[in-house]
Write a protein that binds this DNA or RNA. Structure first.
Length: 424
DNA sequence: AGTCCACAGGAAGGGCAGGCGA
DNA sequence: TCGCCTGCCCTTCCTGTGGACT
């Protein structure tokens, strides 16, 4: 194990020395870490501009989204004459360029409008940032220069602080609420009702809302009053096809690395794999970026097809293992129960998961949760994509959830090992 | 057609932690 | 210090569900 070798290297270096330090820093050129760093420094990098491969990077040109860019531009243009644009509701699946286009258009608009416009972006999926009514309001207050505690104040006080802050200067405000469905799921649609009517309480400023979601059925579940005011204008972002994804990747490669950094077929493969997942550009970029990183780590200066295969495996592994590690112990016990049951080739249903879970709790001194709570945690695991569940009726023998693991065999083994580490 | 089962899942609320102002 | 507020995790209670069984 590398970690063990490094510990030995630390001990061997003696007290006060820096393990694997670089030349000029008291380096010991024989330590394994020194060789790792040195190899990295000497290797020709695959990506000369790593930032361009990042999801959050906003390029000057967004391929295959010019229609949406222009349409959104036209909707927001009234700002330039001091008018209030309509509220806009945007939906489309993950990785279809919604956030990118909105950020790009509003940034360009801000350049032209100057002080007359303030754009505020909040992502409601960011845990502990804007995922509840209170936190969203606190985040808004902060954006407008009011410091409020992250908990403790009555909600009406926060509302007041936000209204006052927005109205302190005459301005047009565009409030971008990304992943808006997460907020409504937790906080209800009352907050949207208030926000869409905020202009009635403002004397100097005007606020327009751009709501973004990848839940296509979200708008139908809203209160009709909120629906009509939030979606004065609507935009739909269709998924990219494989050819469009190739263009996106090629454009980013020009900025990040150059065509000489990849073998033929690499871009095509990344695009094809991402196109299988509802045309997700984010997935395509991730695949290419991780492929490049794997190539670099192997000391190679070109990305080959085999790096893409390895990258796909790695992305799935990392995601699942990271989620699993971050789960509370109760959730881990439920997942472990599902893993054990699926190993025995038994029908995995809520009832027998409860049995195994209760046994695990007894063995490990955990206080078992109620069936109601376990049911929610199973639904959560489903949401993370670790398991797939389906509610079925067995007639006289009741209704239940049939649970299947959606992990490859290799990943199942790794997850099982991880669970053993946690519980034994 | 009515009954039954084993849950799913919504609603309400308890208990705790953490923060604020008086 | 105390009362009040929010977030979060959880339980309790309840209604709904849908296909097999009677």
């Amino acid at each position: 194990m590398v970690a063990k070798d490094n510990v030995n290297a630390v001990n061997a270096a003696g007290p006060g020395s820096v393990p694997g330090a670089m030349p000029g820093m008291g380096a010991n050129s024989k330590t394994p870490l020194y060789r790792v760093f040195n190899q990295f420094l000497e290797a020709k990098p695959v990506f000369t501009n790593r930032d361009a491969m990042n999801i959050s990077f906003t390029p000057d040109n967004i391929p295959h989204r010019s229609k949406q860019v222009e349409e959104l531009g036209r909707m927001l243009a009234p700002v330039l004459k001091g008018g209030k644009p309509s509220n806009i509701f945007i939906y489309g699946k993950t990785g279809t360029g919604k956030t990118l286009v909105v950020k790009y258009v509003t940034a360009e608009l801000e350049k032209m409008a100057g002080d007359k416009l303030k754009v505020v972006y909040v992502n409601c999926k960011m845990k502990h940032t804007a995922d509840t009514e209170y936190r969203l309001l606190a985040q808004l207050a902060k954006e407008f220069g009011r410091d409020v505690p992250f908990t403790g104040l009555p909600t009406d006080m926060i509302y007041h602080a936000v209204f006052e802050a927005i109205d302190s200067v005459q301005q047009n405000v565009i409030l971008i609420v990304d992943e808006i469905d997460s907020l409504i799921q937790k906080a209800g649609d009352e907050i949207l009702y208030t926000l869409t009517r905020i202009n009635g309480d403002l004397k100097r400023s005007k606020v327009s809302i751009i709501g973004i979601t990848n839940d296509l059925g979200f708008i139908d579940r809203l209160d009709p009053r909120v629906r009509s005011s939030l979606s004065e204008e609507e935009m739909v972002f269709p998924p990219y096809n494989a050819v469009q994804l190739q263009d996106i990747l090629k454009e980013r490669l020009v900025l990040a690395a150059g065509k000489e950094a990849i073998d033929g077929g690499v871009v095509e493969k990344c695009a094809a794999l991402a196109a299988q997942e509802h045309g997700d550009a984010r997935r395509a970029l991730d695949l290419l970026r991780v492929s490049g990183e794997l190539a670099e780590r192997a000391g190679e200066s070109r990305i080959a097809i085999r790096h893409v295969d390895a990258a796909q495996e790695k992305i799935d592994h990392d995601r699942v293992l990271e989620i699993t590690k971050a789960q509370p112990k109760q959730s881990q016990a439920i997942l472990y129960a599902i893993l054990q049951l699926s190993e025995k080739d038994k029908d995995v249903e809520t009832g027998n998961v409860m049995d195994v879970y209760n046994r695990l709790c007894n063995e490990h001194g955990l206080k078992p949760l109620t069936q109601r709570r376990v049911s929610d945690l199973i639904a959560e695991l489903d949401m993370f994509g670790i398991i797939r569940t389906q509610v079925i009726s067995k007639g006289r023998y009741g209704r239940t959830r049939v649970i299947n693991l959606s992990l490859s065999d290799a990943l199942k083994e790794k997850t099982k090992l991880l669970m053993k580490e946690v519980f034994y």
